[in-house]
Write a protein that binds this DNA or RNA. Structure first.
Lengths: 254, 254
DNA sequence: ACCTGAACACCGTTCAAGT
DNA sequence: ACCTGAACACCGTTCAAGT
């Protein structure tokens, strides 16, 4: 959750900022690109909420108001940051070019999961109509190529990609949130539950109102040491989704 | 994206607020339950960002500071709101009790999709370690029962549910975000693209750098009239996931 | 015990003024 | 053309003071 999404980014202004090659050589020596990189670093270290205009300006060594010509406004800055990290998704990870489509899609999922681990704050941003920037466009192209030529229609390619990314991002979100609570309280999940349990039991009145949930929670706690296993959910979910896709693809080939 | 997630909710304070039966009969006549219901209505109408302490207090007819004993703080209020709507997920929708597990899981997905449509702001909230409140607990129990007795281990039940909800929520998030932009600009996606295209083409320099993306975008635009079909992605993704699960379940029965 | 008013330390953004 | 300082209209939250 970030601050002030009140005003959505102005699309036309944003496109100008996203695609412009020549920064307007300002007095202060700052460029859009540099400011965005600074903001991304800040978000990596302290989260989106730390990315305030004033704070970014301070890091850039200018006043807050000097930033506006370079970044538009806070909403536009967030979109620029999003496009920036989107463009880096397949820089460190190998491009998904394996021979078998299943390996390619697994590489896509892995790269997106890694991006969420490296930049946890992107799970806080609403994707919305994805920013039509250079980074996002390149990422989309790379990912669609992994899905191309396996017998799906164009619409199915887009829907499959959206579904796969929804699964990865959704699970990553849960993992990130759990990790934050864990870090914040400096306790493991089991410790946390032990601390919480007396208050909870007293409040619930001990009645076994949630038998299946209780049984599952105990099993998950014992086997993973955590209240939820988001990464396991991601792996299993991906595997099921790809199994389903294999059925469709092979069904058509026959 | 909402305001101020800086401070996470205090777990023990939160549990007290979530489970207490007897509101402390205050002078003003307001109760935690009423304030939460008011805040949910406000969020439904104007989004999470409109849910400020001052604004909610105004709606409740008290000063901002009078709210604190009832809701803890803003973070806790958001968790209370989340638990409130979680508890309503299966009130309007029929409980997932069909004979076949596939129908039960489809009902689970449908109910969660409907909740996101009714309360779009819940897609802005980080789920995190889910608030251990009465609503969330009841929802979890209902959903696990839909997965019980079909041959999965407890850990697999939890992971499957998490994956399914990640898929539904992730797709719903994209759908909500697209809907917001559409509503804000009062234009359809195709109109929006037409307005954007000249600026974009000029910026990109017409070079066909994204051939597959271009081909897919055109096809999606022609067949759905939209830039993205999040609902289609949800349907297809769910169907593939359940196909995959059917393979696992049937494989074990044999 | 509960509520209030004033205050504190923040926000994003505007706008006239400087260079 | 770019940057600055001051200001505006907000935030969440604290805290002493009232009843």
């Amino acid at each position: 959750m970030a601050k002030r999404a009140d005003r959505p980014a102005d699309p036309l202004k944003l496109i100008g900022l996203l695609w412009r090659e020549q920064p307007p050589a300002p007095r202060s020596g700052i460029t859009t690109r540099q400011v965005v990189a600074l903001a991304v670093d800040l978000a990596d270290r302290e989260g989106v909420d730390a990315v305030t205009i004033r704070r970014v300006a301070e890091e850039a060594g200018v006043t807050a108001m000097a930033l506006y010509p370079h970044i538009g406004g806070r909403s536009e800055l967030l979109e620029l940051m999003f496009d920036h990290v989107a463009g880096q998704t397949y820089e460190r990870a190998p491009a998904p070019v394996a021979a078998h489509w299943r390996e390619r899609l697994e590489a896509v999922a892995r790269a997106n999961w890694a991006a969420c681990v490296r930049h946890p704050w992107i799970t806080d941003l609403s994707p919305g109509r994805p920013a039509p920037g250079p980074g996002t466009s390149a990422k989309y192209e790379t990912e669609l190529r992994a899905l191309d030529g396996i017998g799906l229609s164009e619409v199915e390619m887009d829907q499959t990609l959206t579904a796969l990314l929804a699964l990865v991002t959704g699970a990553a979100r849960a993992a990130v949130a759990a990790h934050r609570v864990r870090e914040h309280s400096r306790t493991s999940d089991t410790e946390w539950w032990r601390a919480i349990e007396p208050a909870l039991a007293a409040a619930m009145g001990d009645s076994d109102r949630f038998p299946v949930a209780g049984r599952v929670s105990r099993a998950v706690g014992e086997s993973t040491g955590r209240a939820n296993d988001a990464e396991g959910a991601y792996r299993l979910g991906l595997s099921l989704l790809l199994d389903g896709l294999a059925g469709v693809v092979e069904g058509r080939r026959a």
